[in-house]
């Protein structure tokens, strides 16, 4: 069954996301240069160009349920190359937040990683790689993931058993508190 374009149920959300990202959606003429340069496109279910197209048509359903918004690495290659400098990473990020707010998580591991990372930062003021890796592996149930790299990384002091801490972890905590007060999402 074809989709009826008159129903633009997500138009309001799409427009508010575009406004917050500082993007004029109508400027995109769908050349696809963004997708062509995207290093994550191979893993995405919705290409960056298609994400903008769905937003133009006021259709957020496909975007909120997509993996792509979770897979975007925010590398900004797309913006750099776009003839209209359309800020796709911001559209991706804001769409991801909107999805999360609706309890929709396209790629669970990405969401978990993000949460563990933020807990780490709250605890130490910096991320503690060894702990983070361990917790991530335990949470995902993939205990041995990346373990073959551990001896090499320990030997070369790329990770350590002891956490690195900042001089003033309280300040970092205060920063995070403030971000949450301002409406940031909690880990």
């Amino acid at each position: 069954m074809e989709e009826c374009l008159n129903a633009r149920s997500g138009a309001e959300l799409a427009n508010s996301i575009a406004a917050r990202a500082g993007v004029k959606l109508h400027e995109c003429y769908q050349c696809g240069k963004c997708t062509a340069g995207c290093p994550m496109a191979h893993a995405m279910d919705l290409m960056p160009r298609q994400l903008v197209r769905y937003m133009q048509l006021g259709r957020m359903e496909e975007i909120l349920g997509s993996k792509s918004v979770w897979l975007c690495a925010s590398c900004h290659t797309c913006v750099e190359r776009c003839p209209h400098s359309i800020d796709i990473p911001s559209l991706m990020e804001l769409s991801r937040q909107a999805a999360k707010a609706r309890g929709r998580v396209g790629v669970k591991t990405v969401d978990m990683f993000s949460g563990i990372f933020m807990q780490n930062v709250k605890m130490f003021g910096k991320s503690h790689e060894a702990l983070m890796e361990g917790v991530y592996n335990v949470t995902t149930g993939r205990f041995m993931q990346d373990m073959e790299n551990v001896p090499h990384m320990l030997k070369n002091k790329m990770v350590g058993i002891e956490p690195h801490t900042t001089n003033n972890p309280e300040e970092i905590k205060a920063l995070i508190e403030r971000a949450l007060e301002m409406g940031g999402e909690d880990a």
Partner: peptide
């Protein structure tokens, strides 16, 4: 009006 949005690769319609 039945058509295809060839940019999405999906059949669409407009009333």
């Amino acid at each position: 009006c039945k058509g295809e949005d060839t940019l999405l690769g999906k059949p669409v319609s407009v009333q």
